[in-house]
Amino acid sequence: MASRAMHAVQYSSCREGSSDLKYVELPIPTPKKDEVLIKVEAASICPFEWKIQQGLLRPVIPRHLPYIPGTDVAGEIVEVGSGVKNFKAGDKVVAMLNFFNGGGLAEFIVAKASLTVARPAEVSAAEVAGLPASGLTAHQALTDSAGIKLDGSGKQANILITGASTGSGHFALQLAKLGNTYITATCAPQHVELVKSLGADEVLDCTTPEGAALKSPSGKKYDVVIHCAEPIPWATFEPNLASNGKIFDINPTPGALKTYALKKLTFSKKQLTPVMLNAKAENLEFLVKLVKEGKLKTVIDSKYSLIKAEDAWAKNMDDKAVGKIILEP
C-alpha cells in the first residue's frame, strides 16, 4: 500500500481560513505495530478544528505543517500492524485519531488500534463518523464529570444543556435523556422542534430575553449544566444554579478557566469545571451500541465530498451547523 497514492486535504499555514485547505495527492501511510490502516468511508469535523487552524494552540497543535485535519473516521480496515490481534482486514470500524497528528480528511488513515472499535454491519459509516470527539466529550461530561447514570438510576437531576443543537450538544441531550433527568435546553429558534424531538423537556430560544438569561420556563434551578454553546458569563449562570449547582464547560475559554480557579479557591458550592476529553475505546463502544439500538442518533447537518472540503470547512467556521458535518471520499 505504501507505494500507492491517495487523496487528502491539508493546510499549510494557520489563520488563513478555508481557502488554505488544499486537495492533494500523498502516499498511503503504513501502519505501525499498534496501528491499523483504514480506508475511510466517512469522516466528520468539529468546531474546535477550525480554531486549531486559526492558531489557538500553536505551537503545540498542529505540531507540523502541512497538516491534515480530522480526528473522527469510519471505514474498513485494509491492513493491520504486526502487534494488532483484535482486528483484521475487512473489519468495519470507527476510530478516533489524536489532534496532534490529525489525518482524518483523507482516503486512507492510520489509527491506534486502542482507539478503534467495531462498527455493526447495520450501522452506516456516516452515522458513527460523528461520534468520537463530540459524542465522547458529551458522554464524559455527563458521566465522569456530572455523575449522571445513563441507566436511569440515581437521584433525579435538573440539567441545562446550552447549545443543544450543536455537535456535542445534541449528543449530550440524547444521552442525558437516558438518565433520571429533567432537561432544559437552549438553541436558536429554528432548531426548537428538533431539540424537543431529541428529548428536551423544555426549550429556551436563546435569542429571547428569557433564553439569554437561561431561566427555566418551569422555574427549576439547575443541578448540572453541560455548556456546549459560545461563552456565557458566570453572572448569567449563577442565579439559575441550585445551591450545589455545577457547570461543565466543554469549550473552556481563558475566562472560564479563571472562574474555575476562583470558585475552587473560595470553596464555592457552585462550581465551573472545564471538560478536557480523555478518549476511551470502551466509551466509544458504548456509544456505537446505543446507535445500533436506536437510542442515539447523529444529526447530520450536511455531507460533502472530500474534494469539497473547503466548503465544509467554511460552513464549520460559520459555527451554525446543526449536529455534524460529514465528509465522504
Rank of each mutant, 00 (worst) to 15 (best):
K32S: 06
G104S: 08
I61E: 14
P47A: 11
V80C: 11
E16S: 06
E210L: 13
G163C: 08
F267W: 13
L241H: 11
A279C: 09
E49R: 13
F267Y: 12
E210N: 13
N98E: 15
F100R: 14
D223L: 10
P239N: 09
T166L: 13
H64T: 14
E293S: 03
G219R: 03
D319H: 01
K155C: 08
V203E: 15
H7F: 09
T30W: 00
G255D: 08
P209H: 13
A281M: 10
A309M: 02
L204W: 03
N158Q: 12
F237I: 12
L131P: 03
V84H: 14
I77E: 14
V225T: 03
E41Q: 12
D205V: 03
G147C: 04
C228I: 01
D319W: 01
A74D: 12
S12H: 12
E238L: 05
D34E: 09
G169K: 03
L160K: 10
L97D: 09
T137C: 01
G83E: 08
L131N: 06
N283W: 15
L262A: 14
E230C: 02
G294S: 02
K280N: 04
Q140I: 01
V128L: 10
N158L: 05
F100P: 07
V9E: 04
V84M: 14
L204M: 05
V36A: 00
Q140D: 04
A164R: 06
A8P: 10
L131G: 07
A138M: 03
K92A: 07
A235N: 02
A133R: 03
P120N: 12
I68L: 09
E35I: 08
K149F: 03
E76A: 11
K289G: 01
L105Y: 14
L21I: 08
I183A: 03
A141R: 13
I61P: 09
T143M: 13
G90P: 08
P69Y: 11
V80K: 12
I52M: 10
V225M: 02
L56I: 07
T259L: 04
V117K: 05
V195Y: 05
A126R: 15
G83P: 00
H64L: 13
H191S: 15
L214R: 03
V117R: 09
A74N: 11
L142N: 11
G103Q: 09
L97Y: 06
E16V: 05
K295T: 02
T298A: 01
L296Y: 02
L265S: 06
K303P: 01
A242P: 00
L241D: 13
P254D: 13
T253P: 03
K263F: 04
V288E: 06
Y23A: 02
T236L: 06
A281K: 15
S114H: 00
L97Q: 06
W313D: 15
